[in-house]
């Protein structure tokens, strides 16, 4: 399973999502590869992704995808991310 975390720069904010997604997956007892990237590189990474994690600003620019787009409000809240990932993957 593959999860892609995106932000504008591909560093910083998407990395927070990656770190916290991996913690959430641990809690859920699930295994997945989490890749952090920037919005410009999303096409290359999203083809085989099940879930795209992002902030509200990027939803409109993600475009057509078969992945579940999960919008995260508080990037540091592992509880929120765990709940949303569980619902997307369950």
């Amino acid at each position: 399973m593959k999860i892609v975390a995106i932000c504008g720069a591909g560093i910083g904010t998407s990395a927070i999502l990656k770190v916290n997604a991996e913690r959430a997956l641990d809690r859920l007892g699930l295994e997945a590869t989490v890749v952090a990237t920037d919005i410009a590189s999303l096409g290359a990474e999203a083809d085989d992704a099940q879930v795209i994690l992002t902030s509200p600003e990027f939803v409109a620019v993600i475009g057509a995808t078969t992945a579940d787009v999960v919008v995260v409000e508080n990037f540091f809240d592992t509880d929120e991310l765990t709940r949303k990932l569980e619902s997307a993957l369950g």
Partner: peptide, 18 residues
């Protein structure tokens, strides 16, 4: 360019560039 997505949690902005 990308909007205020750097406001990563309530009351906190993580400003950065590449």
């Amino acid at each position: 360019e990308h909007g205020p997505y750097v406001v990563v949690s309530p009351g906190l902005a993580l400003a950065h560039a590449r």
